[in-house]
């Protein structure tokens, strides 16, 4: 789906207003707001200009969102130790490692089932954003569908009787 120019403009203003936030938090905030807009438009059931304007109006001005994010204490101190509870800061844990092992080694030893269980672990992890999980799911789904289609075509052509005969 192509991003509406109004939404693009809004996200641009949000990014500009978030200049004092760390790069990863700024990017994540943009993704969160984008997801929120998409969800609100999906709930509204229409994507026209009026619906987009309504959603953006309800969200408030980008500067207000950033002010709420930064809080009354001002921008976060970049020299401060990272918060280990912040999913953007923490490193991979057991769930993420299991997910990656199932997607890679699991796909070799447990074809079809391995990657699918791996995706369950991916979705249960808070390490990746919803969009990133969605992209990983689409990658697996598309390649598995191609495999299944290839197998179906292969077995279909094998089942066909031989019509040409050598003399």
């Amino acid at each position: 789906m192509e991003t509406d120019p109004l939404v693009r403009d809004y996200l641009g203003r949000l990014e500009a207003a978030a200049w004092m936030l760390p790069g990863d938090r700024r990017r994540e905030l943009g993704e969160e707001v984008h997801e929120h807009i998409d969800a609100a438009l999906a709930a509204a059931g229409r994507q026209d200009e009026v619906a987009v304007r309504n959603v953006l109006e309800r969200l408030g001005r980008p500067e207000e969102i950033i002010a709420a994010e930064v809080g009354p204490g001002g921008p976060p101190n970049p020299t401060q130790a990272p918060d280990p509870a912040d999913p953007a800061r923490r490193s991979m844990g057991g769930v993420e490692i299991i997910a990656l092992l199932l997607l890679t080694i699991g796909a070799i030893f447990l074809p079809l089932i391995g990657p699918l269980i791996g995706l369950v672990f991916v979705w249960s992890s808070s390490y990746w954003t919803r969009n990133q999980k969605l992209v990983a799911t689409v990658i697996v789904a598309v390649l598995l569908l191609i495999t299944i289609a290839g197998l179906a075509v292969g077995s279909g052509s094998a089942a066909q009787p031989q019509t040409t005969r050598s003399m």
């Binding site: 990863d24 990017r27 994540e28 953007a88 490193s91 991979m92 993420e96 997910a99 990656l100 199932l102 997607l103 890679t104 699991g106 796909a107 070799i108 074809p111 079809l112 391995g114 990657p115 791996g118 995706l119 991916v122 390490y127 990746w128 990133q132 992209v135 990983a136 799911t137 990658i139 697996v140 598309v142 390649l143 598995l144 191609i146 495999t147 290839g150 197998l151 292969g154």
Partner: peptide, 30 residues
């Protein structure tokens, strides 16, 4: 014994997704 090339897509599907997830994880930590 030969393996149908289409079977290779099964591990490739998981590996491609795993590479993507590791890449976005590393990019975020930078």
């Amino acid at each position: 014994m030969s393996i149908e090339p289409v079977y290779l897509l099964i591990p490739l599907a998981g590996i491609a997704a795993a590479v993507f997830l590791v890449a976005v994880g590393l990019r975020r930590r930078r």
